[in-house]
């Protein structure tokens, strides 16, 4: 009997658990730097799709906006079908309708506000999902799960990356549902193409990447979910209204327009409007995509670098 076998027998429990053989030695641990990334991502996703109530609740808000805001603010109706008349002037209905359509096209780039808003809502749901991506890391820290994960050989970057990825996947699924609902509610689909849909979702993915990274970074050192909530509440409305998601930027004051131009939400929405509705945009598609890619890349790199520093104390 060799020494190794002797040692093995020495520790073999009498009537214990049968040895599965040599497979079980400790050297089989994977050396890939990405191991655990999918496990961490999947854990986040499982908690989400196994709990449909959360999914439903998260969809309610944009659907309400779509339904109430999009349908109530029927700008098209204001200008058409004799909605207004000027006393003393007998303007034919057709001309008013024509004028209305022109006006709508000029302002919104499409003839109905509902379709305009529907695309904005896609960015909206991406923003809201990303904002809460930071919450889960705060919870993980409070419950000790984060420490548990960090005591394993998982790359620190994977911990942050998994949160970003799961947020991206979640927001894309939610955006798809919103898109389908919008179409059912009467969104204009005359210009929709497969490439248009793909391009729109690519832009939404980039948007989600960048924002998820930002909000995760804000949460990296936080131990208090209330602080995180306060930050989210502080930022969500300015980000949303300071973009072209709800209204076109051209009618905003100069200073707000300047903000809209740096707000990445504007670029994702712009891509959506160009590719789904065939509307004229504020920039070329190429520039929009380049801007979003730079935004996503910059913040995820900063996020991963910060995670190396901030996750270990």
């Amino acid at each position: 009997m060799t020494t190794a076998e002797a040692n093995k027998n020495l520790v073999q429990p009498a009537g214990g658990i049968p040895a599965p053989g040599d497979k079980s030695n400790s050297t089989i641990i994977s050396s890939s730097p990405y191991h655990g990334l999918w496990a961490l991502t999947n854990r986040e996703l499982k908690k989400w799709y196994k709990n449909p109530v959360i999914l439903l609740l998260s969809l309610i808000q944009p659907v309400l906006w779509l339904g109430l805001f999009g349908k109530a603010m029927n700008f098209g109706a204001i200008f058409t079908d004799g909605a207004f008349s000027i006393p003393g002037l007998n303007i034919p209905k057709e001309i008013i309708n024509q004028l209305g359509t022109m006006l709508m096209l000029n302002v919104f780039g499409t003839t109905d506000y509902f379709s305009f808003l529907a695309v904005g809502m896609l960015s909206f749901i991406v923003l809201f999902t990303a904002m809460f991506s930071g919450m889960s890391i705060v919870w993980d820290r409070r419950l000790g799960t984060l420490n548990k994960v960090m005591s394993t050989p998982v790359a620190r970057g994977s911990i942050v990356m998994s949160k970003i990825l799961s947020s991206v996947i979640r927001s894309l699924v939610q955006a798809s549902i919103i898109l389908v609902l919008a179409v059912l509610l009467g969104m204009n689909i005359s210009n929709i193409t497969a490439i248009g849909v793909l391009g729109t979702f690519a832009s939404l993915a980039l948007l989600s990447f960048g924002f998820s990274a930002i909000f995760l970074m804000l949460a990296l050192r936080s131990t208090n979910q209330n602080t995180q909530m306060a930050v989210v509440n502080l930022l969500n409305l300015p980000l949303l209204f300071g973009s072209n998601a709800l209204f076109p930027a051209s009618f905003m004051p100069e200073w707000l327009q300047a903000f809209v131009k740096i707000n990445p939400i504007s670029y994702a929405t712009d891509i959506g409007r160009q590719m789904l509705l065939g509307a004229g945009g504020m920039g070329t598609l190429a520039f929009d995509f380049a801007y979003l890619t730079a935004f996503a890349a910059a913040f995820s790199i900063v996020g991963i670098m910060l995670s190396w520093r901030l996750l270990s104390k």
Binding site: I29, R43, P153
Partner: peptide, 25 residues
């Protein structure tokens, strides 16, 4: 750890497999 770190929304088996994946097993 001192805390209960297992994910309450997942089953016991899923939790163990999650840990295994973290080690790349």
């Amino acid at each position: 750890p001192q805390e209960y770190t297992a994910d309450e929304d997942l089953t016991g088996y899923e939790n163990i497999m999650f840990c295994a994946d973290l080690y790349g097993i």
